[in-house]
Amino acid sequence: KSVAVFNQETLQQRLQALIDGARESWTYAIFWQSSYDYPDGSVLGWGDGYYKGEEDKGKGKAKVVTSAAEQAHRKKVLRDLNSLISGSAAGPDDAVDEEVTDTEWFFLVSMTQSFVNGVGLPSQAFFDSTPIWISGADRLSASACERARQGKVFGLQTMVCIPSPNGVVEMGSTELIHRTSDLMNKVKILFNFNNLETS
């Protein structure tokens, strides 16, 4: 418990800075936070996330290739979550009724997930203290980690997990992005909470 005083607001700003300041086009960033309720922080759970979405390259909205039934399901879940958050009964809402893209859905579903004992992409990076960088749909499909395979199914081409002292920064993109040391360094600086927040 002596490690970091966690500040949710600055966590959000850091994730945003990471994505908005990058030359590459990242779709989302998530901070998986190690839990102090378990020995050695063996569980990584949702800390915070920032969803930017896909680049609009003049082709209009992101292509949605899901079935009508799947879209109806996603919209219902979004409506329910919206009313849960706003505290009122579900009513008409133009934004909620827009199609829910694959990457939006992947991001939303991620909020329900956690990773234990080195199993799963973020957890593996955390326990090995080694970044994982997978670029290419084929490589995501061939990964031993279910999260990487799932990412490919929802349209990602690149997934990255970079460990920090208190968790793991995961980033994903629908574009093919090759490994850069620049991103690793940024994560190292932005997510080293031990140095920044103990005061």
């Binding site: 949710q8 959000q12 936070q33 949702w46 800390g47 915070d48 996330g49 920032y50 969803y51 979405g53 979004l78 979550l81 919206n82 849960l84 958050i85 505290g87 809402d93 133009d94 934004a95 909620v96 827009e98 939006e104 991001f107 939303l108 909020m111």
Partner: peptide, 29 residues
Amino acid sequence: DEDLPLARKRSLQRFLERRKERLIPAVPY
């Protein structure tokens, strides 16, 4: 509502707000 952990609730709130901004851009006067 109380079953939703705070971190997830905040993230979800932000996600929904930003989605609304993305999909329904403010109309300038």
